[in-house]
Amino acid sequence: MSKFPEHIAIEKANPTAVLDWHERFGDRTLIVEAKQIVEVVRTLKDAFGYDMLVDLTCVDYLPRRPRFEMVYHFLNVESKARLRVKAQLEESHARVASLMEFYPIADWFEREVWDLFGIKFEGHTNLKRIMLYEEFEGHPLRKDYPKTKRQPLMGPQN
């Protein structure tokens, strides 16, 4: 198994950016430093033509540390190359740079992650809840949020 070209190029530009990589189940994956996600994505978009952000999500690995993992899926529509990029976040510092400047769709995906996981996106211009309502407290997809903890706007509590 040899390094992917994307990996080599990113390393050349930012030697400390890539922490790990693997190719399990045929999904090419890079694990990068969360603070450098913007530079990584810039390289991917400009030099490798990853012009579509297919998916952006987060996984909560409580009680592991670091707790959160951001997961980005990129696609090059022309050459049909796919790449997954992951970045790990500590609970105490659950914030990462927004990708809105590269991909407009990141706007809604990031709002969703903020809503359900409570990850802050720096540079996002309109970071508010998208699936739930403003009165809702907490972030339901975190593992420590009980599934049936309701916060109704009206009607009985349960």
């Binding site: 949020y145 599934k147 903890k149 109704p152 009985p156 349960n158």
Partner: peptide, 13 residues
């Protein structure tokens, strides 16, 4: 759907 998002029957409203 017995979860945080759903009303458990509209007869509560």
């Amino acid at each position: 759907y017995d979860n945080y998002a759903t009303v458990q029957g509209i007869d509560t409203i």
